[in-house]
Structure formats: C-alpha cells, structure tokens
C-alpha cells in the first residue's frame, strides 16, 4: 500500500504524461527518421519494373496506362517493402501520418 501511495502522490505532483499531436507552433510533431508514413512516389524516376507490385503484401499497388504504378493508401499496410525493392528509389515512405481525407482520391498516390 505504501509503495502504491508513494507512486501515486509522486505522479500527482509531477506533470501528467502527454503525447503531443501538434507542436506548440501548431505543426505536426516530428516523427523519427525511419518512420513509415504515407507513400511518396517520384514518377519521373520510376522505370516501370513493377517489382513493387510483385512484393506488395496487400495488393495496394496497381499499374497505370502509362506503364507506371499508383498506390492505394487505403490498402497499404506500411511495411515499406516497395520502397526497399525499388531499384531507382522512386518510392519512399514519408512522414505524413495524418491519413484523413474528404475525397478518396486523396489517398491514391500517383
């Protein structure tokens, strides 16, 4: 009982634990360097080898008419396999974690 009491009063006197979502300036909190967020795609660098489609575990990647690919973020599981396999580093997993959109179109990366 004594230990629990001591721990509880210590917590009472301290600042409560808080994980911020926005910084003081109102921007998103920074994420670690390796964070796997929303996919970014450099279409110019893409050579259309389609290796990413072959290894994507969730079928989130599809081909387009111009022999490039597009990514459905709704299906993406953020494993980062496409970014890893891409020989031209055209695909990256960015730092954007706020995946809320009004139009579904916003969740397709072309």
């Amino acid at each position: 009982m004594g230990r629990g009491l001591r721990a509880a009063f210590r917590a009472l006197l301290r600042k409560p634990v808080r994980v911020r979502y926005l910084t003081e300036a109102g921007e998103m909190v920074p994420v670690p360097e390796r964070y796997r967020g929303k996919i970014t795609y450099d279409k110019g660098a893409c050579i259309g080898c389609l290796l990413c489609i072959r290894t994507c575990p969730s079928g989130a990647i599809s081909t387009t008419e111009e022999k490039k690919v597009e990514f459905s973020v709704f299906k993406c599981t953020f494993c980062g396999q496409c970014a890893e396999i891409c020989p031209k580093k055209a695909v990256k997993l960015g730092s954007d974690f706020e995946l809320v959109v009004y139009e579904k179109e916003g969740m397709v990366v072309r």
């Binding site: 670690p32 390796r34 964070y35 796997r36 599981t77 953020f78 494993c79 980062g80 396999q81 997993l93």
Partner: peptide, 12 residues
C-alpha cells in the same frame, strides 16, 4: 521500436 524500425507495432 519506432526509432529503430519505423513502426511501433509491425516492425518489418
């Protein structure tokens, strides 16, 4: 985990 692997749950 987030720092090392980029994800808190599914580390890949």
């Amino acid at each position: 985990f987030e720092e090392i692997t980029g994800n808190r749950v599914h580390h890949s």
